[in-house]
Simulated scan of single mutants.
Amino acid sequence: MQPNLKKLESLSQLRPSSIEPKSKENRITLLATHTNDFPVSVKRAQVVMAASFRWLLQLHKDVPRAAHFYSEGLGFTINVCTLRWAELQSGPLNLALMQSPNPDDSITQKGYSSHLSFTVTDINTTVTKLKALGAELDGPIKYEIHGKVAAMRCIDGHALGLYEPA
């Protein structure tokens, strides 16, 4: 009789019941070779947890002004805001704003800038709103087959992409 490979969700599905996991907190995958529902051999595979995204960090000269920019211009929720640090949220994205260690230097002078890209429902209204808050349009709005696209720079020069689907 040829042994079958069967994926088990827990060790309690195995016989004999004396086999127990080392830790109940560990997520485990078990592969058991069995004949007539009796395990011949058991392999334990450790599941490696992927790192979870915490936030994207941007340096700004004026953190409260930058927080206001993202809140009013793009609808971010401000969770924390001090003179030197802010935490904002938009859906699953967490954006941290930190005061630049040397506010006299151009934050993006060496090209070390993040590029945040957003899907918007009305690109023209969003561009107008962001410009009123201090952003600059980096070229004209482009009308592509898949939708409208705009490149902008926020108040401290970080690149922003806007996309309105067709």
Rank of each mutant, 00 (worst) to 15 (best):
P103M: 05
K24C: 04
V42N: 04
M1C: 07
T29W: 09
D104A: 08
N102W: 03
R153M: 09
P101R: 00
L116T: 03
K6I: 03
E25M: 01
L83Q: 14
K61V: 11
A96V: 12
H115T: 12
A159T: 14
T82C: 02
V149G: 00
A51M: 12
S23D: 07
A96C: 12
A32M: 09
T33H: 08
A150K: 02
A132N: 15
S71G: 05
S23L: 11
K148I: 05
D105L: 08
M98N: 10
K7F: 13
Y70V: 03
G73L: 12
F53C: 08
I107K: 00
G75R: 03
G139H: 10
R15L: 11
I28T: 09
T35Y: 08
H34C: 08
A159Y: 07
D62L: 05
L5E: 02
P64A: 02
D105R: 13
E20C: 06
A86Q: 08
H115G: 05
G134F: 04
W55N: 15
F53E: 07
H158Q: 04
A132M: 12
G157L: 08
G134D: 11
K148S: 14
E164R: 09
K7G: 02
L8W: 03
N26F: 13
R44V: 13
A159S: 14
L88C: 04
S117L: 06
H34V: 12
G91V: 14
L95M: 04
E20D: 05
L130A: 05
G111H: 12
G91A: 08
V40Y: 02
S23R: 07
M152V: 06
P140N: 06
Q13M: 10
I28E: 12
T121P: 01
L93N: 01
V127C: 14
P92S: 10
W55T: 08
A45F: 15
L57T: 11
D104I: 00
G139F: 03
D104N: 13
A50G: 11
Q46E: 14
P64C: 01
Q2I: 12
I155W: 01
G134N: 05
G161P: 02
N102G: 01
V40P: 03
S106D: 14
L97D: 04
T125A: 14
R84Y: 13
F53R: 00
T126C: 05
Y112W: 09
Q89Y: 00
L57F: 06
T29A: 11
F118N: 05
L14D: 01
I78K: 05
T119Y: 03
R44N: 08
S113L: 09
Q99R: 08
G147S: 04
L83Y: 03
E9W: 03
Q109K: 13
G139R: 01
F76A: 07
H158E: 15
T33G: 10
P140R: 10
M49A: 15
T108P: 00
S41K: 02
L8V: 10
L133D: 02
I28N: 10
G147I: 06
S100A: 15
L160N: 04
M152L: 15
W85Q: 09
S90M: 14
A32W: 00
A50H: 10
M98C: 04
T77Q: 11
V48Q: 11
N102E: 15
A166S: 10
K6R: 12
T82V: 00
S114Y: 07
Q109E: 15
L14F: 07
V127S: 05
N102K: 08
R54S: 10
I28P: 00
L56G: 02
L11F: 10
I19K: 06
